[in-house]
Design a protein around this nucleic acid. Structure first.
Lengths: 331, 331
DNA sequence: AACGTTCTCGTAAACGTTTACAGTCCACAT
DNA sequence: ATGTGGACTGTAAACGTTTACGAGAACGTT
């Protein structure tokens, strides 16, 4: 049945004794006489014919591919988003092209000029850093883009983002209700999009509550190892009664550092993380985490892109996802 | 400079006053007179010309894409492999198409017929389950495939796999040296490729050591939640002095269950995981883990595929990666 | 000056589809 | 018998590249 040989419309047409147009029509479900339909079906089956995706793409002007660029594939929250986006777009008949732009912002603009080569019909971009130049490239794109996170000023694109301020408020209020008074903050790099957003959230949330803000430290990046260092530095300086962390990884790091110092969680010190990823459950005790709606953001982004693909003139949409708080053992 | 309008070779040729053949040549670095070269370069720059990937693919017969199909994007070990493969193939100028075949084996064969449409130049496949039919489809493929894990009997493909027996031996010997005598095993589903391999490894490793094998339990899948259940079931029945787990997630689950029961790790009970993923570090204490060479397997698989792409006649290679043991606090 | 080489460049044919257009055939109504 | 319309199918032109081929031009050699 299925030979390892490629066969073209031509071969099928020849074998069925019809024209290639008829073959194409039958195979695409267009109306055709019963005789032709049967002969074509039979010939196609015997030859193990499968249409060529590239040729089809060239003709119809669509690749049926969607590109996804995430900053850091190591981070569990991105993995979750990737997974969700993959689900949505494959269900809609698209393939997912993974373009892991590293921390290097140049990769991002490379990606954008690459996109203009038309290897994908659209792009979902979640930039870790958003330099000036990115904005220019974004608006020069021939293809629809939806970005997860804030859009650079001046570019008009569909986007979906988290509400870091509300999220931080959730965490801080929760801690304040327990009577915690010295709430420290372990952040990631503040020159990143999420780092800046969460710092802002922390400051405003505390201000809104009338609590002076506590000590802030920044990890070198959003990883566990960096978190260990940052948390150690923090606890060397002082012992707050609560730590909120920009990330679940950082939170686990803080939790482990605290535990190893003999602090009891949550009695002596409460820990709350952000993103509410799977790994929040792994810690012992499991960590309370602010769910910034990562998977929902991912899903929404995918749907926004699909919507724009089928209607390029659709009005611009900028969605912000409301955060929730998942309370676990660490607070 | 870069307009949001697509421009073709034709437009560039017209503007430069040359033929499209010359434009193509200049842009591909083929020799051309200085005058033509300059005019073409200028015209291309002014028009913001970027060549069309699809048309090029159709002509040259390559998409410059590599497909990757992993069983479960939730699992950290696959994430690591994905990351590594992404690195290698992008460095070689390929894009990575992510085809997340779920647990459903039908997705896998769908993927294979899809591959025959030529949306990618090759495939890296890491099947969780390998039903009979998969073998047939594999050999019917027009494109090179390398599989991570064992190949179904009868198909000849490049592949790279872990040595589960040696890996288990590493774990078991390590525990035996400490005088542990009752070594239990928390496995994942045994009807999966890794599940079966690791069970086999466990049994043979213990037999080689002359230790009768201990209790085996199987989690419903390779996740933390399933691990909690399995570990609870195990510890309800008995209290071994060591548990090896088929997975780091399962290991963390076992560790947490044990800890919550008041067992001291590693004094009362040692825990060792497998895969040596990032999360092995997150636990408290960090868990000892057998490194089955996941990233190395990934890298090797990618390189095998690249090699075959550039030389389809290369001799078949089946690589097995040697495991190592990373000892941490849990043993 | 005639001739062979080499270099440069344009013409045109692919690659494998989809699809507009036109042609054929037949039924049916006039 | 002739026209009208509809259903079907074939011809051919795209889509945007790459590249084999051949025609000139430029150059050096005799």
């Amino acid at each position: 049945m299925a030979e390892a040989k490629k066969s073209t419309l031509w071969l099928v047409a020849e074998r069925a004794g019809v024209s290639i147009a008829s073959v194409s029509r039958v195979l695409n479900g267009q109306p055709a006489s019963q005789g032709v339909t049967e002969r074509v079906r039979a010939a196609a089956a015997e030859l193990g014919y499968v249409p060529d995706a590239t040729a089809r793409s060239l003709k119809v002007g669509r690749t049926e591919q969607i590109a996804l660029a995430v900053a850091d594939v190591g981070n569990p929250v991105y993995v979750g988003m990737m997974h969700e986006i993959s689900r949505v777009v494959t269900k809609a008949g698209y393939r997912l092209v993974l373009s892991s732009t590293g921390a290097n912002p140049k990769d991002q603009i490379d990606l954008l000029v690459g996109l203009n080569r038309g290897f994908a019909d659209g792009l979902i971009l979640s930039p870790l850093r958003a330099p000036e130049e990115l904005g220019a490239q974004l608006k020069a794109s021939r293809f629809p883009i939806v970005i997860i996170g804030s859009v650079p000023p001046g570019v008009e694109l569909d986007n979906v983002r988290a509400d870091s301020v509300a999220g931080m408020a959730l965490a801080v209020n929760h801690l304040a209700e327990q009577g915690r008074e010295r709430i420290a903050f372990v952040n990631g790099p503040v020159d990143t999009v999420p780092g800046a957003a969460r710092r802002n959230g922390y400051v405003t949330a505390l201000a809104a509550l009338g609590i002076g803000h506590g000590t802030q430290v920044s990890a070198r990046d959003f990883t566990y190892q960096a978190g260990l260092k940052a948390a150690t530095a923090l606890l060397d300086k002082e012992t707050p009664d609560a730590i909120v962390c920009a990330n679940d990884l950082l939170a686990i790091a803080a939790l482990n550092v605290a535990t190893r110092r003999g602090l009891r969680i949550p009695d002596d010190i409460a820990i709350v993380g952000m993103d509410d990823t799977d790994i929040a459950d792994l810690a012992n005790p499991a960590i309370t985490s602010v769910n910034l709606g990562a998977t929902k953001r991912a899903r929404t982004a995918a749907k926004l892109l699909l919507r724009r693909l089928e209607n390029p003139e659709a009005p611009l949409r900028q969605v912000v996802i409301e955060p929730t708080l998942t309370v676990r053992g660490s607070s």
